[in-house]
Design a protein around this nucleic acid. Structure first.
Length: 435
DNA sequence: TTTTGAGTTGTTCGA
DNA sequence: GTCGAACAACTCAAA
């Protein structure tokens, strides 16, 4: 007789502490098996065999599984394939009472989960999902009429008012760890088995607490590197969002807390307006006549625009999978406005390169930079890459770190002159918006 | 229903 | 060098 178990399906919540789905699963009446699926539908879309994010997942899962084996005599079942097939097979192998997971708000993830839920329920297996990766989700923060906010400031006002210990308390999973199903060690597929190769990109650390003190003062100066670098950990759930927000409150890091609210905001926007992944939030912006010159796009990608701050940013991205926030705005504005290249091209490039890539934030940020998004800067606000350099990297410390060659140059050779590009984009945008 | 105030991160121009 | 206004008009949210 097969033992009856509950399965907790991990996806972007790779931690045992303060995890909503694990907590609810462990409190159930059957032993809990943890599962992770390397989803071939997702992996097949990745451009590089050395994708560092797959490396990170693999490494994190190995560590978690070892820890679970050592402390609880349990293990994580790691599968590779299409979720529907995996679940069909698992339903044969085990007597599953219920499946627990944490909610994912991306359109494809919602589609996947809806289909799996239906598939499991046909087999009399319950499917439970929980809020875990944001503080407030879906309709928890709405306008008086019940509709979602589309402007950040009033959203944030309510977000802050509603924030209290109830929403920030950690799920005490550790109290129930003895409810993990005792298993032998499941073999972990190698990177090679998954079709990937080792990458040598280092991953950001998890000690964000120390970085909150000077954050507001220094965050805009890329050379100071005064941001928290925990985007990747929030993306994969290796840090709890509740812990992050709690720490921000304790350290009175209100500016940094507002950045966490931006993250919630864009997740909420993506949930309510999933079409914004491919369409402008403001429909008129889909009428813009982009130039979309492939050679110019390539120059931008490689960091060969002739603008030191833009090039430094792109090279930091290409070399490390990370780019400072201020510089992300500058390079995004440059692509959309100076080169008149569709924000979706830039969004896709960031998606390929950023270790901390998050669809909601990336799409939201690019639409903001382009002017087509929520709370967008008016279209006539065109970042001046030279002025941004003077303001935020006056001693060229950041530039020197990524493009040392600029130090020897008296004059750079910009691929397009700022004043000319500015006039051009204003004309093109105006034409589209007046249609 | 109408009105009012405000809108992440900017730039340029002229006094 | 510094400061305020203009940029362009619109949409959102709340009273």
């Amino acid at each position: 007789m097969k033992p009856k178990i509950n399965i907790c399906w991990l996806r972007r919540d790779l931690r045992l502490e303060d995890n909503a789905a694990i907590y609810h699963a462990l409190k159930g009446e059957y032993p809990v098996l943890l599962l992770f699926i390397f989803d071939t539908d997702i992996l097949s879309k990745l451009a590089s065999k050395q994708d560092a994010r797959v490396n990170f997942l693999h490494q994190t899962l190995s560590t978690l599984s070892n820890q679970l084996q050592k402390d609880q005599g349990s293990s994580i079942l790691i599968q590779h394939g299409k979720p529907a097939d995996i679940w069909a097979a698992l339903s044969e192998t085990y007597q599953i009472n219920a499946v627990y997971c944490n909610q994912d708000y991306e359109p494809d993830a919602i589609k996947r989960d809806t289909a799996i839920k239906e598939q499991l329920q046909t087999a009399n297996i319950q499917f439970y999902s929980y809020k875990d990766q944001v503080i407030f989700e879906k309709n928890e923060i709405t306008k008086a009429d019940g509709l979602p906010y589309t402007v950040f400031t009033p959203y944030f006002k309510q977000w802050q008012q509603k924030l209290n210990n109830f929403y920030l308390r950690a799920y005490p999973t550790e109290k129930y760890f003895n409810n993990f199903w005792p298993t032998a060690v499941f073999p972990i597929p190698s990177l090679n088995d998954l079709g990937f190769e080792p990458s040598n990109q280092p991953f950001p650390g998890k000690d964000f607490e120390n970085k909150l003190d000077g954050y507001e003062l220094n965050r805009d100066f890329p050379a100071a590197d005064a941001t928290s670098h925990i985007g990747m950990h929030l993306r994969f759930g290796t840090i709890s969002i509740r812990k992050a927000a709690q720490t921000a409150l304790e350290k009175k890091a209100s500016k940094w807390l507002s950045e966490l609210a931006w993250r919630d905001f864009y997740q909420m926007i993506l949930f309510h307006f999933p079409h914004t992944v491919t369409k402008s939030f403001k429909p008129k912006y889909d009428l813009i006549k982009w130039r979309n010159h492939p050679d110019e796009f390539e120059a931008w990608c490689l960091g060969n625009t002739g603008y030191p701050l833009v090039d430094a940013g792109m090279r930091q991205l290409n070399e490390t999978g990370y780019m400072h926030n201020r510089v992300r705005m500058v390079v995004a504005s440059f692509l959309c406005k100076h080169l008149l290249i569709d924000w979706r091209w830039g969004e896709a490039y960031f998606a390929e390169k950023l270790l901390d890539y998050e669809m909601a934030s990336n799409v939201g940020g690019w639409q903001w930079a382009c002017g087509s998004g929520n709370d967008a800067a008016p279209y006539f606000r065109v970042f001046n890459p030279e002025l941004q350099l003077k303001k935020f990297d006056p001693k060229l410390e950041y530039v020197d770190r990524w493009v040392p060659a600029y130090k020897q140059l008296k004059h750079t050779l910009p691929m397009v002159e700022h004043a000319f590009a500015r006039e051009r984009v204003l004309k093109v945008f105006k034409a589209a918006l007046n249609e």
